[in-house]
Design a protein around this nucleic acid. Sequence first.
DNA 1: CTATAATTGAGATATAATCTCATTATGGGC
DNA 2: GCCCATAATGAGATTATATCTCAATTATAG
Lengths: 138, 138
Amino acid sequence: MTIMVGLEQKLKIAGHKLTPARLAVVEVLETQHDHLNHNQILDEGRKLYPKLSRATVYRTMDLLVELQLVRPLYLNDPTQRFVSAAGGHHHLVCCKCGETVEFEHCTADPLAQELAEKYGFQIFNHLLEFQGLCIKCH
Amino acid sequence: MTIMVGLEQKLKIAGHKLTPARLAVVEVLETQHDHLNHNQILDEGRKLYPKLSRATVYRTMDLLVELQLVRPLYLNDPTQRFVSAAGGHHHLVCCKCGETVEFEHCTADPLAQELAEKYGFQIFNHLLEFQGLCIKCH
DNA sequence: CTATAATTGAGATATAATCTCATTATGGGC
DNA sequence: GCCCATAATGAGATTATATCTCAATTATAG
Ligand SMILES: [Zn+2]
Ligand SMILES: [Zn+2]
Ligand SMILES: [Zn+2]
Ligand SMILES: [Zn+2]
């Protein structure tokens, strides 16, 4: 999640303690790829800080979600995964084999504007996910 | 999921047996509201067919997903929920209180076309979800 | 009606998420 | 630098969700 820079700063500014456990989690998010789930964050985090506990991973991710630095996402298995909360997230998912392609070009922003006005929402980001069959599966 | 008509027919056409357990699940999907999870389908289904087992609910939903009559979705809790696979699904979700608004107008279709060509996907439907704060939470 | 293969239910098992509570350690105040 | 209040932690128990196993049942074609 290399887009996720300065998580440490942001935690501090928000008045939270910079404990080794949190720093390990944050380090993982900043250096590893996107879409990690709690277990993967735990495993990677323990390489940096072996005492790291599962509960702390869950708690730290809750905190980061609350601060809107990160957001949860489900792909093709029943675990919650995390991506940067900045900007949109765009997937093409194959219903059969689960292959996932990410794409960049997206037309959601004008719509976001419109919806924000219509419903009084303040919109930060979005997920646009297309389901279908990949080239190998049809 | 009142859009979901004729599930029964479609199961039969696809060569699957019309057992009372399946009929109960299908009846629930056709008469209750959207976004039910496995547990809710089980509870409702048992009102129609008390012997209905949890495993059969999971299996039937797997089958309906495979036949692309229904598709899974995660909202603000860790349970898989189901909506009609027809057309798109469009949400505005409040990160704080979880309030979910559904909207209709959507601009994803031209993009779907473009992506289908670019990546060789055959696209059936999509999910467009905006995250933000609802009017009460900001 | 019968044969057969698909389907089922019950419960065991596996995996994911949450909770509890005694212990530890950060960071502000001095 | 030291102390203290309080936030934060870790270990393990608990709960919730999902998957698997297998003997028994049953829908349907013929
Ligand atoms: Zn595929
Ligand atoms: Zn977008
Ligand atoms: Zn919906
Ligand atoms: Zn749409």
